[in-house]
């Protein structure tokens, strides 16, 4: 029962998810190139932001001619879901030392947040759980940054006729569909999709922010209407994201 074994266990649990994130990184890197974004800045963004959806939202706003403030705001709205993950991880991370807590918080992603339940089951002390979570998160961030770098390097050899930009809707479909767990989420997603087109004449790429907020509101209203029925369904995010990670895991390894 060593820290090394806990780390290796985390790596094993996440291994099936790394190819997916590497392909996502490859697409993001190719997007950076095809949109004429500074390649070094694009690669660094994967390291320092570490959240592909938010990074892509910022790039889309820049391409649409948006200001710095709107690009940053778009990224942060897309990344707001991390507040939920953060709260879900608080009971476990609260027992870690401060550097570990702050370091691991930096590395957690959509795909890894769900694995903490497994880590808590198998590794009983906070000291070992830290290493398990490190083993889960480091391969994912490495796959993301490595995929981005590869996409940036390969980008220029991709002919324009290939229309590489098509990977953007594809990767967001891949991310969004598993997050749709009921009617409220479906309404939120469809409203966001329709509203961004309806509001296309808003200046500075503001339509993405406006559509995301409209979609969120629509989802909340549907949720409110469903009211009593969904109170019982208030499973903690822990359980739901964990279930999702397990599903993705088994899907990827088959």
């Amino acid at each position: 029962m060593t820290s090394r074994a806990a780390f290796a266990d985390g790596v094993r649990d996440v291994a099936g998810l790394v190819p997916g994130v590497a392909v996502f990184g490859l697409s993001y890197g190719a997007l950076i190139r095809s949109r004429g974004i500074d390649p070094i800045a694009g690669a660094v963004s994967s390291l320092i932001v570490g959240a592909g959806a938010g990074q892509t939202a910022a790039v889309e706003v820049v391409v649409a001619g948006g200001t710095i403030a709107i690009a940053v705001l778009s990224a942060l709205i897309v990344n707001a879901r991390f507040a939920l993950y953060s709260a879900a991880l608080a009971p476990m991370f609260g027992r870690f030392s401060r550097p570990w807590r702050l370091g691991l918080a930096y590395l957690v992603s959509d795909q890894t947040v769900g694995l903490y339940g497994r880590g808590q089951e198998r590794w009983t002390t906070p000291a070992l759980q830290q290493y398990y979570m490190l083993g889960v998160t480091v391969p994912m961030r490495t796959g993301w940054v490595g995929g981005t770098a590869a996409g940036i390097l390969l980008g220029p050899v991709v002919p324009g006729a290939w229309q590489i930009g098509v990977v953007v809707p594809l990767m967001f479909i891949a991310l969004a569909i598993p997050s749709i767990r009921g009617l409220p989420e479906l309404v939120a997603a469809v409203t966001g999709l329709v509203a961004v087109v309806a509001l296309k004449d808003l200046p500075l790429g503001l339509n993405i922010v406006a559509a995301a907020l409209l979609g969120m509101t629509a989802g909340l209203l549907v949720r409110q209407r469903a009211g009593g029925a969904s109170v019982g369904a208030h499973a903690s995010v822990a359980a739901t994201v964990e279930a999702r990670a397990h599903r993705e895991d088994s899907a990827d390894s088959t």
Binding site: A53, T56, A57, E60, A64, I77, V78, A80, R81, A83, L84, A87, A88, A90, P91, G165, V168, P169, F172, I173, L175, A176, S179, I180, P184, E185, L186, A188, A189, V190, T191, G192, L193, V194, A195, V196, V197, N207, I208, A211, A212, L213, L214, G215, M216, A218, G219, L220, R223, S236, V237, A238
Partner: peptide
């Protein structure tokens, strides 16, 4: 921990992911 989060904040955070991703799919 998640249970101390105000319910409206928690629900809003759950909706923002699908809504934002729908908007990006629509835009791109």
């Amino acid at each position: 921990d998640e249970d101390r989060m105000p319910p409206l904040v928690r629900r809003a955070l759950r909706m923002i992911g699908p809504a934002a991703m729908g908007a990006i799919v629509g835009s791109s």
